[in-house]
Amino acid sequence: MILVQEEDFDVDVLYKRLLHANKTGAVAMFVGLVRQFSDLPNDECSFELEHYPGMTERNLQAIVDEANQRWALIDVCVVHRVGRLSVDDQIVFVGVSASHRAEAFQACDFIMDYLKSRAAFWKKETQGAKSHWVEANEKDQHSLARWSK
């Protein structure tokens, strides 16, 4: 399941979608949140995510398809929010079920690394009256590079 939406998501509901009787041996999940990214305590921070409907979903499906080629996965769920988000709001859910924990952990990590660097989202951070578009940083690129080995 791949969803791009403005609405918040329920982690418990998504977790239960990943469970498949007599098959699932492990579920690995990641939930990303908007953090306070200003050092000034009174600065109001927000995060805005934009995307191209259709293109973004195809892009996410390609990432999930590659994860399925690398590992024997039972199910994958990716939910990514768009629109304006505030500190502590949930941004992204990635959940992976597999027969074994190593596959679930690795696939979840892989999907998140690709989401951070290759997914078709545009991110803008706003701190008080200042805003800027966020680009993939060197740390994100380094994380992504480890999967090409």
Rank of each mutant, 00 (worst) to 15 (best):
E50A: 07
S38H: 08
F93Q: 01
A102M: 05
V11Q: 07
S117C: 06
L144A: 13
F110K: 02
A119F: 08
R101F: 04
R146V: 13
M55Q: 12
W147V: 05
K149R: 15
C45I: 14
A119C: 12
V4C: 08
I63L: 07
R58K: 15
V34E: 00
A107R: 03
Q5I: 14
L49A: 10
I2Q: 08
A104V: 13
V4G: 07
F30W: 12
P41A: 14
R84Y: 03
Q36E: 15
A104W: 06
L115P: 00
K139Y: 09
E50G: 03
R146F: 13
L85Q: 09
C108H: 01
K16F: 05
T126Y: 01
F105D: 05
F121C: 03
R17K: 15
L18Q: 06
W122M: 03
D8C: 04
K123P: 08
A145N: 12
Q61H: 06
A102Y: 10
A119T: 01
S86P: 02
V13I: 09
F30G: 01
V94Y: 03
A136W: 00
M55T: 05
A145G: 13
H142R: 15
H80M: 02
V79I: 15
A104C: 10
E44W: 07
L19D: 04
V87I: 14
V134H: 08
V134L: 14
V79W: 00
D75S: 08
V11P: 02
W122N: 02
S46N: 10
M29R: 10
V87P: 09
H100N: 11
E66F: 01
